[in-house]
Computed example of a mutant assay.
Amino acid sequence: MHTLITGGAGFIGSHLAEYLISQGDDVTVLDNLSTGRLANLRQLSRDPRLGFVEGDVRDTELVESLVAQADRVFHLAAAVGVHVILDDPLGSLRTNLHGTENVLASANRHETRVLLASTSEIYGKNTADRLHENSDRILGSPLLSRWTYAAAKGIDEAFAHAYWRKHDLQVSIVRLFNTVGPRQTGRYGMVVPRLVRQALNDEPLTVYGDGEQTRCFSYVGDVVPALVAVEEHPDSAGRAFNLGGAQEISIKALAEQIIDVTGSRSIIEHIPYDQAYGEGYEDMRRRVPDNTAANELVGFVPKTSVRRIIELVAQAMLRDQTDRAGGLGSTPEGAGATAEVTHRTLAAEGSAS
């Protein structure tokens, strides 16, 4: 099986590449390295089954040539992260819309299967107890760049569904809820790695707003096999599936747990949204997935607890810093951590997930 992963040098994409190669696939990664990093693929750098192409999903000819060689495509390439979206809404729209249509059009011409990675962001401000795949989308004003990502990903899904209906393109959709794990950075607004890095440096943990907003975090090691299982299932085409964590937690409680797990001397500092993101930013008070559809289709059950996710992210950051100190050339999010922190033993290291 030859698999193309767009955005494969990113956090999720690199874990997916490793998993697919371990299953016997040949994998080609297409990434423009705007948010992805070659360092994410370093464990595969000597594997002949991995090919890397630096390029953009908006490049029609390049996408066409790569899709023509693939048996299936995992389309993960997108402008991601709150800061990326807010700083360049026009570029984000072009990447997320034109890039996705390029992939779908090429896949249709070559009858290539596709899995489209979408997001829980499409539900917007819907705070229902459990968001299922047919839940209403409640978005803010399209003039607020906060909502451009949600709007674009919703249109991406509409494109995919239209290709399935009109051309019988075998395309399935997954909506990811706050996927977390090693290699994810807080550079673009991802909360867990940002807070873990701050804790490892004994810096104040910056919690935006009152911290009572809640999320469900899912571990990348639980999500990646489910991505593949959904793509491979014959009944997944033309449908969308939530993939999210099972444990709802407030951001304030998350910060407290991070301090506890890392043994940090940090305090929690509340930052107003307008100071963090600029005037007019809107957040969601609650976002909880209903994973029933994915469970019924492929048996998806999120197994990794929030505490275990924190441990794994912190351990990875400390390992990366040790590698950097040894000259292996990685550039982890926690690069500023002190030598004392590098040798810190996590308070709950090795606890069950």
Rank of each mutant, 00 (worst) to 15 (best):
N178F: 15
L328D: 09
D156I: 00
G245P: 01
I85Y: 04
T214L: 03
A339V: 04
C216A: 14
G51L: 02
Q170R: 15
A335M: 00
D31L: 04
L312K: 11
T345W: 00
V301F: 05
L16W: 06
G326K: 11
H132S: 13
S330D: 06
A325V: 12
D31M: 08
L115K: 09
S120W: 03
T206P: 00
L176G: 06
A276I: 02
Y123K: 06
R308V: 02
S145D: 14
E311M: 06
A117N: 06
E333P: 01
P234H: 10
Q69I: 00
A17S: 14
V298N: 03
L93R: 06
R37W: 09
L41R: 04
G91S: 07
K125E: 12
R194M: 10
V306H: 02
V288P: 00
V192W: 02
A78L: 05
G244P: 08
Y277V: 01
H161L: 13
P193M: 10
D222A: 12
F217S: 10
L116E: 03
L90D: 09
F74I: 09
G140H: 12
I271R: 15
V27Q: 06
G350R: 03
T342N: 00
N201F: 01
T127V: 11
L195C: 09
L41Y: 05
P272Q: 13
G209P: 03
R130L: 14
A105I: 00
V298R: 06
Q43H: 14
L50Q: 07
P193A: 07
A339H: 04
E54T: 13
G238W: 05
A77H: 10
D283R: 06
N126S: 11
R130E: 12
P302K: 10
L30T: 05
K303N: 11
Q170C: 02
D222Q: 10
V301H: 13
S120H: 11
E121S: 14
Q69W: 02
